[in-house]
Nucleic acid binder design. Structure first.
Lengths: 119, 119
DNA sequence: CAAATATATGAATATCTGCTCATATATTCA
DNA sequence: TGAATATATGAGCAGATATTCATATATTTG
């Protein structure tokens, strides 16, 4: 990065606005973490998984068949969703059922859909 | 993909649940589009830009200086955010000011943050 | 008009990511 | 116990992506 390219790097152009911005700016690693949370929703396969789970739980096998995506690929994606706490699993015999982790997830999904419809 | 690996590919294991899932499953290209919308928030630099814009507009130069990211990189990221309609720009002379596009964006951001805090 | 400034963009590159393939683990059932 | 079934996972590869660098465009100012 070339920090000394322009005058603005040394003196902000709009000090008052920058002061406001600082107040809401994410701190430290929060930006990374937030980005990874949104990243968990940033893939079509994962979006379709989330949408399938909006009103019911499903097992891996049924998700795979419903979305026509291989079981391995679905398992890999579910792991990411689990890691970011977007879904939760419960095991019953050899079947593992997945559900959305909490209401935030469907809210995020619906808010995103709403944004799309508004443009 | 190996579709004929398991019995479930031909007969769903839980027909009733799959029927429920079908009702909420995203259709056609909506999954792709939704994923790209969330993808716009799936990078730390873009998350930090959004957070800076929560309460004020900012010009490119000030964003670059505030985040200590090169002007070029910021411009590239702003373009993505503009393309996905997460931010809007207004030009005044040679200065370009960016703001969040609408309330959905800050809501998405805040919901994401809330989810992080709850785990 | 020429120099300076603010922003945008194309190309190149290094890194990340999603899928497949092969295989491991765990559970049921004969 | 052994075969079948449901799920998980590591390695590898092909495609996506964030940044840098060089440069282009647009606007102001001297």
């Amino acid at each position: 990065m070339q920090l000394k390219e322009s005058a603005c790097e040394e003196n902000f152009i709009h000090e008052a606005k920058v002061a406001e911005a600082r107040k809401t700016l994410v701190q430290g690693d929060d930006g990374e973490e937030l980005a990874r949370t949104f990243g968990a929703l940033a893939d079509p396969t994962r979006v379709r998984i989330i949408s399938a789970l909006l009103e019911t739980e499903l097992c891996v096998c049924d998700i795979s068949a419903l979305l026509k995506v291989s079981q391995s690929a679905i398992s890999h994606q579910l792991r990411q969703l689990r890691d970011m706490r977007l879904v939760r699993s419960r095991k019953e015999g050899r079947i593992v059922y997945y559900t959305l982790d909490d209401e935030h997830i469907s809210e995020l999904f619906l808010l995103g859909s709403e944004h799309l419809r508004h443009k």
